[in-house]
């Protein structure tokens, strides 16, 4: 019962003194957390969108592609990191690869939804204008599927921010280092709450940025007669 002795000392949930003394550590972890998130989502888009297009073009592959991404998504994050760590070591690649595999399903599924919602007459019009398959995809179908893709990117970003914390398993968990580190460091409440709040804030800020980006990229959705 060693923690009973600690309760006599001040252990507030929030402390400016803690923030001041550890500003450098917190900044470094913020950069780690942000770079993990951005890299993982970017890689998931680079891999996921072509897979979604493949599933969209080749109908027999839709089921297998969605199912394998679904299996990867069902594998618990802890297990995924445990599979990768013995082979990649406690490297940042372990965390990054785990995050990408996780984000894939969200990107593929939402891009595919976006693509399959492109109206048939629009596609007909494109082909009637002499657009080939690839040009129609790049100029007509993918732009119209952008809202779906953006939904996928938003979901993937928010869940990746939360998932980075599991990286503490290999010592690279961004703000998760503060949350778990504070817990192990004699239940240091200020450290735990700082990590948790910053983690949620990062998710909210990135989500708002993506909403803004979505509005910029799809101007036609704003001007369509007051529909949100």
């Amino acid at each position: 019962m060693s923690f009973l002795a600690q309760s006599a000392a001040a252990n507030p949930w929030f402390s400016w003194a803690y923030l001041h003394a550890n500003a450098d550590t917190i900044r470094a972890l913020a950069i780690e957390h942000l770079s993990f998130t951005v890299e993982a989502v970017a890689l998931a888009v680079v891999v996921g969108v072509p897979l979604a297009v493949l599933a969209y073009w080749v109908r027999p592959l839709t089921g297998p592609i969605l199912a394998s991404a679904g299996v990867l998504y069902t594998i618990p994050s802890l297990a995924l990191f445990a599979f990768l760590a013995p082979f990649l070591g406690t490297d940042r690649r372990t965390v990054l690869l785990g995050l990408v595999l996780y984000a894939l399903l969200l990107i593929i599924r939402n891009t595919l939804t976006g693509l399959s919602q492109v109206p048939a007459d629009v596609k007909e019009a494109a082909s009637a204008m002499g657009y080939g398959r690839l040009r129609s995809l790049l100029r007509v179908e993918l732009p119209l599927a952008l809202p779906g893709l953006l939904t996928g990117v938003r979901l993937a970003t928010v869940s990746t921010v939360a998932l980075v914390t599991v990286g503490v398993l290999v010592g690279k968990g961004g703000f998760g280092q503060l949350i778990i580190g504070g817990f192990r460091n004699n239940y240091h409440k200020a450290e735990i709450l700082t990590g948790a709040i910053l983690c949620v804030c990062l998710a909210v800020v990135l989500d708002l940025l993506l909403v803004g980006l979505g509005r910029m990229l799809t101007p036609w959705r704003r001007s369509s007669g007051g529909r949100a």
């Binding site: 928010v158 869940s159 921010v161 939360a162 998932l163 817990f183 735990i192 990590g195 948790a196």
Partner: peptide, 18 residues
């Protein structure tokens, strides 16, 4: 649903006991 997506699982795991 959206809010819980943003909360890391380790946060309640460490905060609730304290």
């Amino acid at each position: 649903s959206n809010a819980t997506l943003a909360i890391p699982v380790v946060a309640p795991l460490t905060i609730l006991p304290l």
